[in-house]
Nucleic acid binder design. Structure first.
Lengths: 230, 230
DNA sequence: ACAAAAGTGTTGCTCATACACCCATGT
DNA sequence: ACATGGGTGTATGAGCAACACTTTTGT
């Protein structure tokens, strides 16, 4: 017997703000909708929560459909629930942001969804309240990454310190002192220097580092203060 | 024409974790359910999101029903969406936490809902996943309050520094050095000393302070570091 | 006079910032 | 040899933590 019979049921969706980093700038993975409403308009990737899955599972499913990736760093962001946000029918959307290594993105799937990496600074007009979602995600990413070492999720397994520097500079739109940044970073004990160097971006070559998974798990939830206080 | 006709609609609820402080310890406002299912069991205050309100409005409505209070500090916490969390019918719940001045709580309403302030350390078994919600709220409150001056929302308009100290000690379950805490607090410029003293808790009496609303609005979103680093 | 809580100051140390030069290598 | 980006060290100052005594007043 259903006890809640007088209540209204609503559509519940998830939308994913997918961040990627190509070594130069932060990007978002957007799609051009292949269906009505708003066909051909730019949009975040989303989907409805199905009867037997949690919203997290729905977001993971959507992400896998679009990128082919599983076990991605993903965090619940915020619920967007304006009654008229979707003009077709009221839909409550749970927004998630994800951080992925852009090079792992499976390009072939891009065609099916007409997906594209767009620089965060040149995001077009998106459908519904998706632009607002992106703004919130940017803010939350900055907030979280100032205290926790999550931006490594955007980098490949092996990365160089100049790369991380560029990443932080991109996320916060600031210029950092490489000497101080370097010291701070190494003092966390998060990085393990490798024997080989990346010779693509300089003649001298920059040492590769990997994350120390042990330390990483310990410190992901502790405060680290990566960004200098003004 | 409805385009989303093949999708399943779900019940969407809000649940409120309501924190209060009585000068001694942190408390939660819980109710004893007056209806089935789980009649007479302890529970958070909640309600369904109605067709023409946002989830925030639903939470504010629920909060007003229970406490008579409006314009309360409230923050969206997290969505709880396990398919079986409510055994009657699948319900997605958006959890909010609220901070209120316990003395403003209208006691008469308590009877209608059989509500009670319970010390955070003695929370009974609650229905569904509400205990888990409480744990998450506690964590989030600690996280946020370590960096932002939100705990003032739990205090009356006029409060003393020893009171705030006790509050912070209660929230974090630690003992703080009153000299350092004092200095840190005053250096924020958030407080305005009043002429009168609270003589209830000591013979000497402790000066009342009020919040400097201007500074407060500026600093509520900046990092302040109230809790000493280990 | 004494008990009980409020209020205040100093010092050492850690950590963040500011800043400039040498290194390795491909051309 | 030189241009390019990588890597390192030091000195200064701000802010945090550790710590103990005086003040006020009700009983």
């Amino acid at each position: 017997m259903t006890k809640y019979s007088k209540q209204t049921r609503l559509l519940v969706a998830v939308d994913c703000i997918i961040f990627g980093f190509d070594g130069e700038s932060l990007k978002l993975l957007l799609i051009q909708r292949g269906f009505e409403p708003e066909k051909n308009k730019w949009s975040l990737m989303g989907g409805f929560v199905e009867p037997n899955e949690t919203p997290e599972e729905a977001a993971a499913r959507v992400l896998k459909q679009l990128t082919g990736l599983e076990n991605v760093y993903m965090e619940q962001m915020e619920v967007f629930g304006e009654p008229n946000r979707d003009p077709i029918e009221r839909t409550i959307s749970i927004a998630y942001y994800a951080l992925i290594d852009i090079r792992k993105y499976k390009d072939q799937l891009s065609k099916e969804y007409r997906a594209e990496w767009m620089p965060l600074k040149e995001i077009p007009k998106l459908i519904f309240d998706h632009n607002s979602m992106v703004e919130h995600a940017k803010k939350k990413l900055r907030y979280k990454a100032a205290l926790h070492p999550i931006l490594f999720e955007l980098l490949p397994e092996k990365f160089t310190i100049p790369q991380i520097l560029t990443l932080y500079e991109g996320v916060y739109d600031i210029v950092l002192d490489k000497r101080n940044f370097n010291r701070k970073l190494l003092s966390t004990g998060l990085l393990v220097r490798q024997k080989d160097k990346d010779k693509e971006n300089s003649k001298k070559g920059a040492f590769y580092y990997k994350l120390n998974k042990e330390t990483y798990k310990d410190k992901i939830s502790s405060f680290l203060n990566f960004i200098p206080n003004p």
